[in-house]
């Protein structure tokens, strides 16, 4: 994984609450055996009209949302299925951070493991962000704050290990493999107990 330290972008807003992973990427596209190329399917059923053209009512199809890497989403984003295809699709679509007052557990976990910044902010700040689309933000992973254009800062907390992995591009599987001895020891103890 590449290190992720800082992100600067305007925000785009999807204010709906409970945006589930089926909406992020519908199940019928899960037959892929690859990770790549899911961006064109991201939000498929919301983003396109039945004839395949862009749905003008989908907020991310608005001209001002183009190129925004930071998504401010309604509460409980990413609920539903555990599919990691959801963060893969968002990243491939160009979203590198999701800001929300509450993010579903499995999604948040999957997102951070792929370098997608899933960040929880307070209700009040969330409300402000939802009502100010297009704000230029800088997300600082080291300092754990979001810098606002007026110089204000929104602090946030990342789980320390997830943050360490993001900052240093640490590969979590590599980290686990370093504990092979402890794992073998545990397994030995398991067999003795059986």
């Amino acid at each position: 994984m590449k290190p992720v330290t800082r992100l600067h972008s305007r925000t785009a807003v999807l204010a709906d609450e409970n945006i589930d992973t089926d909406r992020i990427i519908p199940a019928r596209f899960l037959t892929t055996t690859e990770r790549a190329g899911l961006g064109k399917l991201c939000f498929n059923d919301w983003r396109y009209l039945p004839d395949g053209s862009d749905n003008p009512a989908f907020p991310l199809n608005q001209p001002q949302a183009k190129g925004c890497a930071i998504l401010v989403a309604g509460r409980n984003f990413g609920c539903g299925s555990s599919r990691e295809h959801a963060p893969w699709a968002l990243l491939d679509y160009g979203i590198q951070a999701v800001l929300c007052s509450e993010i579903a557990d499995i999604f948040r976990n999957n997102a951070l493991k792929n370098g997608l910044l899933a960040i929880v902010v307070s209700e009040a700040e969330h409300h402000w962000l939802l009502t100010h689309p297009g704000t230029e933000l800088t997300i600082d992973v080291q300092g754990q704050y979001i810098a606002l254009p007026d110089g204000g800062r929104i602090p946030f907390q990342l789980e320390p290990f997830a943050r360490h992995c993001l900052l240093n591009g640490v590969d979590q599987l590599g980290y686990l493999l370093q504990h092979a001895d402890a794992i073998a020891h545990y397994e030995q103890h398991l067999e003795q107990a059986a």
């Binding site: 555990s82 599919r83 990691e84 557990d105 499995i106 976990n109 999957n110 493991k113 792929n114 789980e159 290990f161 979590q172 599987l173 980290y175 686990l176 493999l177 504990h179 092979a180 794992i183 397994e187």
Partner: peptide, 22 residues
């Protein structure tokens, strides 16, 4: 509990997961 595909790989290779206590 359910896990993502990266974690499926973790379990395959190490039979372990990195978890914060819920």
């Amino acid at each position: 509990f359910g896990i993502g595909t990266t974690e499926v790989g973790h379990v395959m290779a190490t039979q372990c997961l990195l978890q914060r206590k819920p």
